[in-house]
Structures are given as C-alpha cells and as structure tokens.
Amino acid sequence: MTSQEIHEKIKLQFPAAVLESKTEGVVDPFIKIAPEYVADVASFIRDNEELGFDFLMCLSGIDYGKGTLGVIYNIFSMKHRHKLNLKVEVPKDKAEVPSVSLIWNTANWHEREAYDLMGIIFIGHPDPRRILMPYDWEGHPLRKDYKTPEFYQGMKVPY
C-alpha cells in the first residue's frame, strides 16, 4: 500500500484522531495524530490484515522547543513491506502519551529511553524506569532547556 492509502485507512477508522497527514513535499511522509489515540491506532494498524504493521523500527522523543515535545514512531510491516511514520505532539507541562510497549515489545526500551532523556511519560508502561542515566539522576538531558546540574551525589558534574 502507498502512504496515501495507509493514511486514508487510518483516517477512516479514527476520524477524530488524525490531525495532519502529509505525503507530498516532505522527505518522509507522515501522519500526525492526537496523543490520546496512540495506543488505539497502534493496535489497529498492527492487527489490521491489510496494514499489518508488526515491526516498530524506531521510537524517538523530540523536543520541538516552544513548549512541545513529540514522539515519532517509525513502523514497518514485515508482511507487506510498507512503512508508516506516526507523529505525536504533547505539551511539555503535561507530557503524557499512552504506551505502546504491549503492542510492540521494541517500544519497551525505546519508551524508557524517551522517558529518561526527554521526560515523556508513557502511561501504562510495564517497567517505567530510567534506562541510560543513573536511576537517581534529576532532569531529562535531551530537552533543549536542560541545565546540567552542579553536583551529582556530591561529585562536581561540569568540568
């Protein structure tokens, strides 16, 4: 299926969820959906026979600046060999996205990473711990407004 058809199918199923869909004028076509629908859309596109998106390639957290964070899901179908880029934007002060880690196991660690480095909270994640930073680290380093702490456990951080 082409991106156009995939996007149409998602729109048909979730008319309220789709905020933006772009297939032309960009390098990679993408579809932007409302954050609260992520888990529903994800399980739909995985289980739908024609879509069959069973392989989550990548999940990235992004700080767009201007008070919004984003999550991007790059999804692939092993069966049909087509791709989908799913985008979500959330406000920084309420950065909550439903977790998809029960739909694609890949998301488990990627969501932990996005939480760790970007501070996006994934609701329903089975194991919401930090993954790369120490467990008692404060702050989320990949945010654009992140300030390195002076001390970590009594050790001077910037040197």
Binding site: V26, V27, D28, M57, C58, I62, I72
Partner: peptide, 20 residues
Amino acid sequence: PGDVYVRTESARGELGFYVI
C-alpha cells in the same frame, strides 16, 4: 527543514538514523 528516517543493514542489524 524536515526529518528523515534512514535505515541500513549494519553488521548487527537495522541501524536507523532519525535526523531532524
């Protein structure tokens, strides 16, 4: 301005770079 996800087969598997 834009973003791209490119994946290649590295020795260990799918190496993807998501660049904005």
